[in-house]
Amino acid sequence: MATLTPTLTVKQPKSRHGGGGDIPHYPGGGGGGGGRGDESPDYGERLRRCRLGLAVGIAPIVMLFVAFSSAYLVRQGLASWDLRTNSYINDWAPLRMPMLLLLINTCFLLLSSLTMEFARRHAARLAAIAPITAMPGIAADDESSFPWLGITVALGLGFLAGQVLAWRQMEARGLFLSSNPSSSFFYLLTGMHALHLLGGVIALSYAVVTVWLKRPPEARHIVVDVTAWYWHFMALLWLYIFALLIVAH
């Protein structure tokens, strides 16, 4: 487990600061890069801006799934005049889903949200002490680089693999995309969610890559932070979809 307070090693006797203590704040909006000179970007403002952008960007995704949900509910209750049988038919057949597998997948995703949160806080800490670790001769201990990000990616991929397995199980039961309306919606909702989650996995992989590319910790923090909130949203979205499928199937 990572320690809450990263340990800093002083490599040269003449360095001026120790580690730990209060997490210094980013310089406020409007200011320059704090003590780092006017050329550096204001990461505090950038973080706030990217979070705002993400919050705004989540709205259309919500609307997409609102539209799918309303189509789902409408279709379920729909009696259409079938010219073959000359009667109003409601062809909604309740769906038997691979519940155990879906529950396991849900656990994977929720766990990944947890590890994602650890990764996010870790990145925040690294960014906070960046002014200190930027000084020559000071490094944060290796123990603080526990691979929370990597684990999240793995769990996310695990969830996706589990979803593919769930689809395979459905197909084994003879339930394909076009078999009946409720199976159509099952594949649609889970598939669209998986697609968006895959986007999150790609973003996470990029976050991992930023470590290797040695981007500044503040910049990495922004990437990890924004991806984390997106990831949490994906988990909430999944819970909603799962609940909808259970309650309304």
Partner: peptide, 8 residues
Amino acid sequence: TSFFVPGG
């Protein structure tokens, strides 16, 4: 799929 197309 048949989201918009009725039968017959």
